[in-house]
Amino acid sequence: MTNQPHQLEIRNLHASVGDQPILKGINLTVPRGELHAVMGPNGNGKSTLAKVIVGDPEYTVTEGEVLVDGVNILEMEPDERARLGVFLAFQYPVEIPGVTIANFLRLAMQARKAEGEEVSFTEFYGKLQSALKTLEWDESIVERYLNEGFSGGEKKRNEILQMLMLDPNYIIMDETDSGLDVDALKIVARGVNSMRGPNLGGLIITHYQRLLDYIVPDKVHIIVDGRVVQSGGPELAKKLDTEGYDWVKQLAVAGA
């Protein structure tokens, strides 16, 4: 295993809902240490890609592979993938009534431990304190029920809180910036940047340059109609910001 590449690799990934194909051959490689932006117009498969990576049973993979550090994860349950260090910040986090954030975080941390190993109170509480501080959040938030009655912004911040607590190796952020005001956006970006380093890789799905001003991506990929139609550096995101998406839609037509 030691000589396996430390990267998230998506090879010729095809996926559908029912008999409707949505992903039509995605190829992407993200080594640890890099964050790649994934952009593209609405309804072109970005969220689908994110959910296929974490194992949403709603989608059927018809072809291709997703390799985490060289291991194909497509046959794994979502929780096994999570334990390999894959983390998705959902575009629409669901509400779980009656389950406090604190309780949930402790269980999620516990789930990553080896059999017989317990999350200690100091480990949990220490981590929680520092994460809350990064996110400028009051401790009382963890006594609230998971996402229940949260505003859009609170839900997004809560995704980052979980990310900070669970120490993933690969993060996928699905439009975490949408619905956030500038202050909240900065806080979220600070959370992500605090984790950045040689051990963290990931995909940042977004429509806008806005978030990428704060989390500067190593690469940018554009997905149209279930395929990566163009990849480039951070300047590609800026181009989309000024010129819009019409020209990339043309690329998809040309490539098809």
Partner: peptide, 17 residues
């Protein structure tokens, strides 16, 4: 899916809900 994606098994997730 949400709970599983954080590492809980399917049974643990249902139990927690």
């Amino acid at each position: 899916l949400y709970l599983q994606s954080r590492g809980l098994s399917e049974d643990e997730a249902a139990g927690l809900i």
